[in-house]
Write a protein that binds this DNA or RNA. Structure first.
Lengths: 362, 362
DNA sequence: GCGGTTTAGCAAACCGGTTTAGCCGACCGT
DNA sequence: ACGGTCGGCTAAACCGGTTTGCTAAACCGC
């Protein structure tokens, strides 16, 4: 025990370098940050001694003195195990990371710590916050505001007067449903995204609700009503999508088309369809949402609503760096993105004889 | 009634709370950290005033005083845009994150900053480092050592006397190749992982080299020689895998089986095979490496070498938290994992008439 | 040789917490 | 009444950097 502690050579500090070089701490600091304030030979001497001592300025001390952390927080109500294995977050985070790095910032993930998102926010040392998927009913949104840090809301409830990035979820969903209707489909199952916390389900402005209303609005145009029974929800993962579709099937639903609110769920649904013994798209069409990279690699390639995942991340960084709501006009702290449908191989004309085929098969 | 509050209200500090409560800074600190040192009513009074002032202890100042950051660094030579969209890293990171959170630690990604991994390491404020995919020729490995932080090497060159997690890459690869050989395949293309930086390619202990030697050892058992020409490399992504297979095809290679060193590449390869006009597995068998979650969702489901992606992450956290090489016996800072082949639908018997079919088709 | 301006570097305050050493008064037994 | 103990709290040092005056010497033109 004791021996172990002594074995640990303490890291050298700025004071060590100053003493060794026979200068003040300030001089050492200058040598690294504003070398023009010192004579060139003093600078080189200090630097040599510093490297000889393996000196590395302590980032934490520097943060404290500067009152900046050079870090942007990426806040999500879901746990990191979910986030990191979710390809949508992957692409979004990649967009954030690229833009952050260009600005010399690093990113830190803020997600529930021992179940408490609030605690995680308190412990996070960041200069700004990008909050993903927070609904109005999340009290954390107020906590963020009180932290006086610049922030921006993504995939959130549409709130006026908040720095936020909006995506035309409803328009994209409408296009997806219209596409299927045009192909002759009339019987749908919708795979909805389960909110990370209970209670948000009724929030009329939540992402899932916006997309649902898009689907319904397209259906309404041909006099079709999508009942609540044909909407099944689950986590936005492949597994969640497969489970949801199986559940729908067990409930007796026999759709010719599946509208998934995320590509991950759509991929899960495609597998579930195959497991049931049907083919995509001959028997069942599937359309996703997000247009992930992987949508081009599925078999068949996935028809999906495109939204600019990486660009959303980059734009979020811009807003936070501009000061979020502390920036001058709120308008510049808001941004709207459009969506569009990308048709690939997972959608086809509705089967005329589906009902009989299924009956035969069962 | 009150004087106009400046829009930029500074955050309240421990001194503000102390003044307001008529106590010392120490008392405020005690009220939050060791309340038993204070009388209960003093504690409640201080806490009330603190919440009234929206006081939140500055994490950075706390880190400096404690000389701990409660953060583990996850270091990769690849950029974050690659990392976040790579499902293998996703699963590994999820394992790290889950274990870290259980220990009350957060994680920070350390990856090249403006092209320099070295600079990124200097700027990182962490208590330990998990380094993924660093080869012997990476000078950063020495920089990490000099930082005197506990660390552990993953997917790295096998080095003696280093805290590290080893995976039986060679055995897994051998099993994959043996499986194909048993199915009658004799003509292979190998999709290798391109090292993040040039130069590592010749490193005999690099992951890619270990897997390759596994493939070759299985081939050698039936007197087969896998030439360097049939090994094409690319980034470990779906796109990289597709491109690599197309490149192989253009070079005139006509394999009946593809051995991909990552599942992402395998998925890309499957798409490329379909684009060429062939079927998986009837015309070409494909086997991956990693056994990602998504391997169960591809069509056909992907045969792959299983390695414990999440467990690797969790074990890495354990080692770093135990002090890495500063822990007592080095043995406890090393860990070996086994691999095994999971056979699914992407592999089948070698086609007897493949050559003719292709000739017809072209 | 003289005031005035640079230049090079220092001392000390500061960032916002934690922690140690110690003070003071209340309570206690005798 | 007295020394001892203890609970409750404070003053001050500290973590490791940055930054703001400020000084002393060198440099300048005349």
């Amino acid at each position: 025990m004791e021996a172990l502690v002594q074995k640990k050579t303490p890291r050298s500090t700025i004071a060590d370098v100053a003493r060794e070089a026979g200068v003040s701490k300030a001089a050492v600091s200058f040598a690294f940050n504003t070398p023009e304030r010192l004579s060139t030979d003093t600078v080189t001497r200090i630097r040599e001694i510093a490297t000889g001592l393996d000196y590395r300025p302590d980032p934490v001390a520097r943060m404290l003195a500067h009152r900046r952390t050079w870090t942007i927080g990426l806040l999500t109500p879901q746990g990191l195990d979910f986030i990191f294995t979710n390809p949508y977050f992957g692409e979004f985070s990649a967009g954030v990371a690229t833009a952050a790095e260009a600005a010399g910032m690093s990113i830190q993930f803020i997600s529930p710590l021992h179940g408490s998102l609030s605690r995680a926010i308190d412990r996070a040392s960041v200069d700004g916050i990008i909050a993903v998927g927070l609904g109005v009913d999340h009290p954390e949104i107020d906590q963020i505001r009180r932290s006086r840090l610049p922030y921006v809301l993504i995939d959130s409830t549409a709130l006026p007067d908040e720095p936020a990035i909006y995506v035309d979820d409803e328009g994209g969903a409408r296009a997806a449903a219209a596409h299927l209707i045009e192909l002759g489909h009339r019987s749908f199952v919708i795979l909805g995204i389960e909110p990370p916390e209970a209670g948000s389900g009724t929030d009329p402005a939540w992402v899932s609700a916006r997309r649902l209303s898009g689907y319904r609005s397209a259906a309404a145009e041909v006099g079709l009503d999508i009942s609540d029974e044909s909407v099944v929800t689950g986590p936005a993962s492949m597994e969640g999508g497969a489970a949801a579709l199986h559940r729908a099937w067990e409930r007796g639903l026999r759709p010719t088309a599946v509208l998934a609110m995320s590509d991950a769920m759509a991929i899960g649904a495609m597998r579930a369809v195959r497991e049931i013994g049907l083919r995509v798209p001959e028997d069942v069409s599937v359309v996703g949402f997000d247009d992930l990279d992987v949508a081009q690699y599925t078999n068949p390639p996935l028809t999906s609503v495109h939204q600019p995942n990486r660009a959303k991340g980059a734009e979020a960084v811009r807003i936070v760096l501009d000061g979020g709501r502390h920036g001058d006009p709120l308008a510049s702290a808001q941004h709207h993105f459009t969506t569009h449908l990308v048709v690939r191989g997972s959608t086809a004309s509705a089967p005329q004889l589906r009902q009989e085929v299924v009956d035969d098969g069962m």
